[in-house]
Design a protein around this nucleic acid. Sequence first.
RNA 1: GUGGGCGUGGUCAAGUGGUUAAGACGCCAGGUUGUGGCCCUGGAGAUCGAGGGUUCAAACCCCUCCGCCCACCCCA
Length: 416
Amino acid sequence: MYQAPRGTADLLPDVQPYWSFVRSQAESVARSFGYGRIDTPIFEDTGLFLRTVGEETDIVQKEMYSFKDRGDQNLTLRPEGTAPVCRAYLEQGMRNLAQPVRLFYTCPMFRYDRPQAGRYRQFHQFGVEAIGDGDAAVDVEVIQLAMTMLGSLGLSDLTLVLNSIGDATDRPAYLNALRDYFSPHLDKLGADDRRRFDTNPLRLLDSKDPAVQPLLENAPRSVDHLGGPAQEHWEQLKAYLNDVGVHYEEDHRLVRGLDYYTRTVFEIHPKVEGAQSAICAGGRYDGLIEQLGGPSTPGIGFAAGIERMILNLQRQNIEPPPDRPAPVVVAYRGDSAKSRGLQLAAVLRSEGLTVILAPERSLKAQMRYASSVGASQVLILGEAELAKDVVTLRDMAAGEQHEVPIADAGRHIVGT
RNA sequence: GUGGGCGUGGUCAAGUGGUUAAGACGCCAGGUUGUGGCCCUGGAGAUCGAGGGUUCAAACCCCUCCGCCCACCCCA
């Protein structure tokens, strides 16, 4: 027997209401902020991710689904959404549109990770990108969009954590400060953290090693090493957030695992403790477009994990609205009634109703079937009805039925 | 990549070496001839995750692999 590949899932109709709920809420909130949908290819040139996400990151080092196609092209199944959108921004000349360009997407992502709660190899993200305007008001807009979107799902008890990791020009001084701080304590660092000390000292800040926790208390803060413009941006952002009443917590240890972030970084997670708690995360990436060979262009965005949003809906016992109406079942007795039922079903569907023709079984079994598929009403056609050119309309919940002319059966069906 | 737990019909689940592998839910049929949801009866459906080994004999013991769950790493 074949099984779905590790870390992938079959989404059967019974879970689809969650998916359509999340997608439609996210999409309508994004549109209300003036964002338009973009779809980019599921695979891209491998170099796009190497260059932007960062050669030293875990995503690139060990999580990419990369392959060569028959033409020897190095391709990679998209592990994240920002780089492809920026590539499209450049390639499609979107800098000639009104700036900032506001885009959103919902699509599958692929990372070769070990699956666990809320983590899959094929997973789905809803994300937005606002490209072409570095103003802190745009940061606020994007954060507001994220909070509004999660709120529209009914998720409560969310925490927004915020930090600024400065511009590329501020980075070297800060990294030196971090190295200076940690170097007397190298003996206390585990192997992973030693490696980080050399390759990416920023990541020492979110080390989970209990031995280094006390060290983190007094570690240098990125916000104390911001250059003038980044400093101003950071203060402006916080002021705007206060103005619009968005609550946040500053977290000086918040850094991100992708190299392209500058200035603002943020995460949103449920207050309940747990692994993989971030359901939404993002930040500013003012150097990314330039890195891709374009003109210096600021940008900011976030991505939210659809599976994680659904997980939290379920944890908070939030039921999504049904994604399809209760069907009307057409039951019948006899061959000519069956044929007439087939015609009737087609007519009713063309009138916009959801109609299922019962399977050919005893009438009793057809009724049982109607009941188990949740039919609100059943239309019964038999010899008696055919003779009079009527159909028996049974209301399943009320348990009552009456005859109506076949020709306007549709008008008598209610509430589906 | 690391550590722990686990894999028995579609789902849940009993069964820890020995005749035809319980049960429940679900599915199908029937309970008199044209009617559901409760109830009753019957039926279908399992190479006991896969492969190898030990044994006269294995779902049950051993090995390998695969997968699932949880945590770490990392991330949405």
